[in-house]
Simulated scan of single mutants.
Amino acid sequence: MEVVNQTGLRKDTSLLVITHLTQLLCYVIGFGGLIVPLIIWLTSTDKVEGMDVHGKAAVNLQLSLLLYVILSIPAILLLGLGILTLIGAAILGFILPIVNAVRASNGEEPTYFLTIPFIS
């Protein structure tokens, strides 16, 4: 349901939910988990109420996960600690978008655990 408020921004919770759920494209087709939310955020940040906060959170999560994966690859040589980091990143990357999609549908702010705020 789309409702236009006094500021000219429309309230579109379904687009916010889609923004969070498109992060799961990495698990389905192998890529797109960063690109698609970034495109949605950049194209609709000035049209949809709350998109700026939710889009930044989604992109920050994907950038943080990318950094964790890159750092865990050399850490595999150190007693296998990188494998635990890879597993943890995979679990966080799967659960957090779903949780925040539910939060977006309820009109709440997103919360991402262990996310580095690259874009603020």
Results as ranks from 00 to 15, higher is better:
L16N: 00
N60P: 13
N60C: 08
I116C: 04
I39K: 00
I73V: 15
V48P: 07
L71P: 14
H20N: 03
Q23I: 09
L96F: 09
L86I: 13
D46W: 01
A58K: 02
L114A: 15
S64C: 03
D52L: 10
I39D: 01
L92G: 15
Y27E: 10
T19C: 12
S64G: 03
I95L: 11
W41H: 01
V48D: 04
P117A: 08
P97R: 04
L66E: 08
L86K: 02
S105H: 14
G107S: 07
T111F: 15
L71D: 12
V3L: 10
E109R: 03
W41M: 01
I29L: 09
N60K: 13
M1E: 06
A75D: 04
T85P: 05
V69G: 01
I98G: 13
E108R: 11
M51Q: 08
G107R: 05
H20D: 00
G55M: 00
I119M: 06
K47H: 07
I70L: 15
V59F: 04
K47R: 12
A58V: 05
S72C: 12
V3S: 14
V102C: 03
S120F: 11
F113P: 03
G88M: 08
Y112M: 07
A75Y: 08
S120V: 14
S105E: 15
P74W: 02
I91A: 14
S64T: 15
I73G: 10
L42T: 02
V69R: 06
G107N: 09
F113N: 05
G50D: 04
L42E: 00
N5Y: 12
G55H: 01
G93T: 09
L42C: 03
P117T: 10
Q62C: 10
F94C: 12
L63C: 09
I116A: 04
L96R: 06
V48H: 02
L67H: 10
A104R: 01
L15G: 03
T43M: 14
L42V: 05
L65A: 05
Y27M: 10
L86A: 01
I39N: 00
Q62V: 06
L79F: 14
T22K: 08
L25Y: 11
G30L: 12
G55C: 01
L15I: 07
N100E: 03
L92E: 08
S105W: 15
V17Y: 10
G33M: 10
D46L: 05
V28E: 10
F113E: 07
M51F: 00
F31K: 02
A57Y: 04
P97H: 04
P117L: 10
I83A: 08
A89S: 14
A57P: 00
L34F: 08
L96M: 14
E109V: 09
V59G: 02
L38M: 12
